[in-house]
Design a protein around this nucleic acid. Structure first.
Lengths: 180, 180
DNA sequence: TTCAGCAATTGACAATTGTCAAAAAATACG
DNA sequence: CGTATTTTTTGACAATTGTCAATTGCTGAA
């Protein structure tokens, strides 16, 4: 976990009471629909995808690779039921860091507060970059970027997940692929 | 400034050395192209827009209304020259909060660190909502949402700014407007 | 007040992507 | 294996939005 954002031994000790390690089997959920997201999830081992239903169809919003974290931003901060679902696509080991504990620690422990800020800023930068990409690149450009930056995704997940992640239909993705 | 995120008197005193109030005339810039964004900008009075050039055309990314803050996310966090430009569309009073000062305070002052987290999480939630809107709503739906949620924008800025903010051309916006 | 310059609209057409249906390919499982 | 199921591809067509060019409308400075 510390590989992502630096944290002293003392800081880690502070977090420990609020951390739980769980094994999630392939196909099982880290976060279910309408469950409120009360943790930040570090995918220590394995692979997850974040998706939701739109007009009866699954839309993949994000993938979380090993050694990355995920959570439902709006559910977590607004403490409302999540429309996002987080599913493990492989047998995974996930570290749950509780919001309750984190909030409590942030009130008194400056190292934890800064650790949290770092995580959030990282998420903000990612969110911003994804927004730029969706708004100003064509479907083909986004697919090419994906091949370049996260080729492992294409090896791990069905193309329909990739398609909705890119914001296009399976059919369009298929046509893009034949033309490259 | 405190109207947005709570801050004690002591907290405000801590920030004061790193705050500067500036008057920016209509048409002048808060952040210029290729300048590194070293502040968070609170628009205390006035109105600003954030835009950049794409293929020689201005693309409006965001508007900042009175009592809101703005900054270039990637330039600020990655300390790189900004491709975003922040321009005042009215005579404005802007409070500059320096990153250097904020970073320094965050190391030792937990209230400031939490204040900063709150700002960033707010920005993250906004960014997320905008992403959803761009990816899954049609141009017309986004325009209708804009009328509903931020009607003042339509009164303040030329339609071409609104169009690029919605991610469409002026022509398309014009056609949407005639059909409502 | 007038006119220059910018902003907004309109028309014709093109490009991109979506939708629906069907076929082909890949995969899972008894 | 072989079959059932799911995934991917393909085709025909429609919808949305963009591009380019021309026109109209608006605004501000001389």
């Amino acid at each position: 976990m510390r590989s992502i954002y630096p944290l002293s031994d003392a800081g880690l000790e502070l977090l420990k009471p609020f951390i739980a390690k769980k094994h999630i089997s392939k196909g099982d959920f880290i976060l279910r629909k309408d469950e409120t997201c009360r943790h930040i999830y570090f995918v220590n081992k394995g692979f997850a995808r974040i998706f939701y239903f739109k007009n009866g169809k699954e839309i993949t919003e994000w993938f979380t690779a090993e050694k990355n974290f995920c959570f439902s931003i709006t559910s977590y901060f607004e403490e409302k039921p999540s429309h996002l679902i987080i599913e493990c696509l492989e047998d995974s080991e996930v570290i749950y860091l509780s919001k309750e504990g984190l909030d409590k620690l942030c009130k008194t422990q400056i190292e934890i507060s800064n650790f949290f800020s770092k995580m959030i800023s990282g998420a903000l930068i990612l969110s911003q970059k994804r927004m730029d990409s969706i708004q100003f690149e064509t479907a083909r450009q986004r697919y090419e970027q994906l091949i370049k930056n996260q080729p492992y995704i294409l090896q791990k997940v069905p193309l329909q997940y990739v398609a909705s992640f890119l914001g296009i239909t399976s059919e369009t993705l298929s046509r893009i692929r034949t033309q490259i």
